[in-house]
Write a protein that binds this DNA or RNA. Sequence first.
DNA 1: TTGTAGGCGTTATCAG
DNA 2: CTGATAACGCCTACAA
Lengths: 332, 332
Amino acid sequence: MATIYEVSKLANVSLATVSRVMNGNTKVSDKTREKVLSAMRELGYRPNATARSLASNRTDTVGVLVSELNGAFFGEMMAGIEQELRLADKHVIITTGHSEEEKEKDGIEFLLSRNCDALILHVEGVSDEYMIELSKGKVPVYLVGRNIEQISENCISLDNEYGGYLATTSILAQGHKEIAYIAGQQFKPDAIERFAGHKKALSEAGVELNQSLFFEGDFKETGGAAGIKALLATGIPFTALVCANDEMASGAMKYAREHGIDLPKDLSIIGFDNVIFANYLYPKLTTVEYPIFEMGQMGAKLALREVYGKQDVYVKQVFSPQLKMRDSTLPV
Amino acid sequence: MATIYEVSKLANVSLATVSRVMNGNTKVSDKTREKVLSAMRELGYRPNATARSLASNRTDTVGVLVSELNGAFFGEMMAGIEQELRLADKHVIITTGHSEEEKEKDGIEFLLSRNCDALILHVEGVSDEYMIELSKGKVPVYLVGRNIEQISENCISLDNEYGGYLATTSILAQGHKEIAYIAGQQFKPDAIERFAGHKKALSEAGVELNQSLFFEGDFKETGGAAGIKALLATGIPFTALVCANDEMASGAMKYAREHGIDLPKDLSIIGFDNVIFANYLYPKLTTVEYPIFEMGQMGAKLALREVYGKQDVYVKQVFSPQLKMRDSTLPV
DNA sequence: TTGTAGGCGTTATCAG
DNA sequence: CTGATAACGCCTACAA
C-alpha cells in the first residue's frame, strides 16, 4: 500500500504538502495540488486512517450505544444516526447495553477504549449522576431519548410525560373510565414519565387511578401478554388498556384475542412509539408517535456541530410526541 | 493520560516488557508482571488503541455492512454479530448498503478505509464477480445470507430454495391450487432462490404456475400491499398467497383486510423469515424460519476463527429453513 | 505557498 | 526472560 511518502516523492513535493492536499485546510497552489492528486491516483494511494488518528488525535469515529440492536425502535434510531454520520464521513462503532447498568457502563468503557471522538448514547440503566460525571470527561457525550437537566445541552429528548398524557387523554375523550395500564420498567425514565402523564390525564379528568389495574411490564411483546393476563385475572373490569409502548400493546392484543376478547369492541388498546409495525397490526394500533429516527439524526448532528465543528447545522433538542389515531381504540 | 512509557518508568522495566504484560504473548516473570500491573493500576493506564493499531497493523475492528439498520431481519443479524464480537473484544463498525450496488460498494470502501481486520457483509446489490474479486484483497470478507460457490468457505447461508419449496409445499398440502406469489426484487439472490423453490414445489405437484399471479415486490410492507392490490386487480381468483418475506405478507394482510377479505378464511397467506412480529400479526403468520441471529453469530465466529486465530470455534455454514405453521394458512 | 523535523503511543525485531 | 531501538504513516508547528 502506497504511503504519503511515496506520493510526495512521485509528486516531487514534501510530505507536508501532500498532507495539506489531503486535508484541504491550508492553501496549496493549484499546480501543486494537481501534481499531488495525480500522483495519488497513479499510486492508488489511500490514507491510513490509523496513522492519521495517531498523529491528529482524532479517529473520525463516533461510538453509539443502544439497548438492543434488534427491535424496531432502536433500528430507527441507529438508522438516523448512521445516515447523518456517514454523510459526514464519520464512522459509527456500535455496541449494546441491554438496559442494564453494568452492561451499559461496560459498553461505554468499550467505546471509550476505542478512542471515539464522541459518544451518542441511549442509556436506561445508568443514573443521572453517572452521566453527569461522564460528561465531564474528555470525550463529549450526547444523549438521545433522555434529558438530564444539568447536561441538557447534550440531550435530544422527547416529552414523554406529554406523550403519556396525550394517550390517556385520547382514551378519556372516548368516554373510557375503567382504564388499565401496562408500564415499562419503573427504573427507566421513559417508563416513569409516560406513566406520570397517564396519571396527570386521569387526575385532570377526575378519574381515579386504580392501582390494581397497573402492571409493570418490560417493553416487550411478552411483557404485554403477561400484563394483560394479570390484569384480566384481577377480575376488575376495564374497557381500555394503555400500554407504554407498541411492543407490549401488540403482545397484549395477541393475548386478548387468543382469549376471546373482541378487539377493539370489547377493549380499546393504545400504544406508544409508533414503530413501523403498529400500522400493520390488526386492528391498526392507535399510538403516540416517537420520532426516533429524526431524534437519532439530531444526536448525530449535535455531535457534528460540537465535535467536528460543522457550523450552521440546525439541531432541535426537544421533540413533542403526537397522537396517531387508528383503529384499536373506540368510544366506549 | 498515562502512556506505556510512564508505566515502564514507574515499574522500572522497559517499554517492551510493559507491552508484553499487556499482550500476554511472551513469557514474563511473575514478579515483573506484578510490578507492571500495579504500576498500570496506579497510573490508571489504558492502552491507546490507535497507537497499538498503527504498530501492530491490527485494529481489532470488524466492519459490518447490512442493507438497512431498521427492519426486524437486519436487527437480528446485527445483534448476533455484535454479541459474538463484543465477547471477543472486537469492535464493530457498521454501515448500510441499501441493497443498491453503488451504495454497497461505497459502503465497503468506507469500511476498508477504516482498516478493518475483516468485513462481514450482507450484500444484495453487488455481483458474485465483484465479491470474488473483493475476496482476493488483503482484508478477509465474510458473507452472511448469501452463498457464492467460489468463496463458499467464507459464506454463511440459508438454503433459500428449500425454504421457498417448503412454503409452497405446505400450501399445496392444504389443497390450494390457485396460488399467487409476491416476490422480492428479482436481482436479489434470496428472492430468486425462494421463487425457484416455489416453482419447484408447484411443478412437483403438477400445478401450473400462473404468470399473471406473480408480482415482483420489494421485501417491504408497502410492496406487499401493492402486490396484492395488483394481483386482485387481475380478476383471476386465488385462494393462497405466498410472500417472499414477512414484511410483504403483513402489508398484504393489511390491504386484504381493508378490502373486505376475511383472513384466513378467504385467503391463506404465508411469509418467510419468521421475524419477531410474524407471531403477533393477526392471524398469526405461517412462515418459514430464517435463523438470522444465529447466522450472524456464525459470521462473527468465522471471522474470529480465521482472522483472530481463535481455534476450536465451531462454525456452521449452511442453514436449513424450517416451516412455522401458524394461523394465516388454512386448508382450502 | 512550501519544506523540515519532531512527535503521536505501541509493537516488533534483535541482541543480550 | 528482558532491554534497546527502529519502525508504523501521518500531522503540525516552525522555518524558509
